[in-house]
Amino acid sequence: MTQFLGAVAGGVGLGSVYALLALGFVIIYKSMRVISFAQPAFMLAGAVLVSYLSPSIGFVPAVVVGAIAIAGVALVVERVAIRPMVGKAVFVIAIITIGIDIVVRVVAGAFIGRDPRQVGDPWGIDAWEIGGVYIAHRHIAAFLVTTVLVLALFAFFRWTPIGLAMRASALDQEAAMAQGVSVGAVFAVSWALAGGLAAVAGVFAASGRTMDQNLWHIALAALPVIILGGLDSLGGAVIGGLLIGVAQQVVASYHRQWFPGLDTNIGSITPYLVMLVVLLVRPYGLFGTREVERV
């Protein structure tokens, strides 16, 4: 039981990272109907930037500055490479984001360098022990920060004018334009939000370990999350993120007992396996909008 609870605690921490990343994917998808494969690069770039900033200005300011800076990078990318393609096939835009991902990721990766580099978080690998269950501080921090950010995001969409504009253009882009919504601004804000969220996610993904080039694989595992939650469901992204995170940690923790024949831990591909099963049953995810189509 303690093993299970420990795995769940770790899973909630990992799931929070997934939820942040998945929110970015969903925000961009809702505004442009495109999946941005550039999220992994923004996440890595955010973590690397924070690791450079935090020794000089402290961890929390570094995260804030890093998130804003990556949001700025995302803005530039959107304006330069994505905006000219609006109206083209979504597949083409998605592939462009793959190209951007490669460029940004390699440039950010070049700054990791040879020496072990850390984001400078105050938690490290400290943990509380509650009844035999180890709960790492960084997982709790990830969960709390994600909760705050999610509440802030929902409030943003609910009560601010630009949030209303984003909801309107997600519902019907042409009707929103007819009402005077600047769809260009909506695109820009959605990319900036996604970039900032990815940077924060990158910090939590990199905390408690040294930075390496493979950090971006975590962001790819957030893709099954949005499939599970449904591409256009913000709530689905959060719930899906936590579900996938917990499932992955539980499987990783019980790997020895359940699959004694397998050497490599199967936890790493659990998100993809869950995704396949869910898609076979519900092709539009758990909370996604079913496309109505009659032939």
Partner: peptide, 28 residues
């Protein structure tokens, strides 16, 4: 058969998952 149920970007992500699952099998 997955492709026939899914369209566009859903398919892209599922095939991406295929790469990871396949690589796991090759490793194992």
């Amino acid at each position: 058969p997955l492709a026939t149920r899914l369209r566009g970007l859903y398919l892209a992500i599922v095939t991406l998952g295929l790469v990871f699952i396949g690589q796991y099998l090759f490793f194992e």
